[in-house]
Write a protein that binds this DNA or RNA. Structure first.
Length: 273
DNA sequence: ATAGGCCTGACG
DNA sequence: CGTCAGGCCTAT
């Protein structure tokens, strides 16, 4: 479900609300979501730890503990985190519960169970393949125009390339479509056919769309909600995603939907080429 | 590069 | 019933 803007929204809220709190204990209801170590050790490592900081890398949340290891959470397709007082009724599909001091619960809820969680030693991401092989952070200073240009030196379809986490971190199906619309580029274009103007437009679109989406606290199409259960509002600004057969706000032609790399892709046939 | 699999739920 | 869903891994 969530892409970079949604994860970043959760991260910022968590950073404000649970930094410095102690994990008193942990319950895992669905052990197969724990990638490593085994469940008992996972809980034992969390118990008594203090959350010093909440960071993000791509779509991963990284909780820095007061120990030489990090608690890692990936929300998969349908995962969410809920931070509540300890008397709030537990939702269906709650798979991990952290008891925080004082009297707060952090719940990991995930109907489709595509997410995962782990504890890794400081900076040793090898056990989590996705995390170990992430491309650059698109909102970091190191993501420069030359970096993007070098990523584009391959014939892959531009949409698939934007969604490839080992090339650029954090962009998924919604934001790849919105970025390509803003840049005026057809999602099927081979990346190595973009000219210099298009590369610049794409660079600026990646940064603008992701920033704007964070400002809007993410997109709630199906079920994204923040820590308090509130939806985002960036879906109100979507130009193409989920708008098949609706008129393009820029030119009036109808938005189309095609399967690209197995995913629904929305675009405007006249604004994007 | 592309399908298929992992899961549950919503909707037609 | 079938199709679809914001992710990601694998096997062909």
């Amino acid at each position: 479900m969530p892409e970079l803007p949604e994860i970043e929204t959760i991260r910022r809220d968590l950073q404000k609300r649970i930094r410095g709190k102690t994990i008193e204990r942990c319950e895992v209801r669905l052990p197969r979501l724990i990638t490593c170590p085994d469940c008992d050790e996972y809980c034992a490592l969390l118990k008594g730890s203090i959350i010093l900081e909440v960071n993000r890398r791509g779509k991963y949340l990284l909780f820095q503990l007061d120990k030489p290891y990090q608690w890692v959470v990936h929300l998969g397709m349908s995962g969410s985190l809920q931070l509540v007082e300890d008397d709030v009724e537990e939702p269906k599909h709650t798979h991990i519960v952290l008891y925080l001091h004082p009297r707060m619960l952090l719940r990991y809820v995930d109907p489709r169970t595509f997410g995962e969680s782990a504890i890794v030693e400081q900076g040793c991401y090898e056990p989590l393949k996705g995390l170990a092989h992430l491309g650059p952070e698109p909102l970091s200073r190191s993501f420069t125009l030359p970096v993007l240009r070098s990523i584009l030196h391959r014939p892959a379809k531009i949409k698939s390339l934007l969604m490839n986490q080992s090339r650029i971190a954090g962009i998924g199906n919604i934001y790849s479509d919105e970025i390509l619309f803003r840049a005026g580029i057809d999602p099927l274009r081979p990346a190595n056919t973009l000219d210099e103007d298009e590369i610049r437009a794409l660079y600026s679109a990646i940064i603008t769309v992701l920033r704007e989406a964070i400002k809007g606290r993410g997109s709630s199409i199906n079920n994204f909600v923040d820590l308090e259960g509130n939806p985002g509002r960036y879906q109100l600004s979507h130009m193409v995603y989920g708008r098949e057969d609706q008129p393009c706000a820029r030119c009036g032609n109808l938005i189309i939907r095609r399967k690209i790399g197995g995913r629904s892709s929305y675009s405007c046939p006249s604004c994007q080429s």
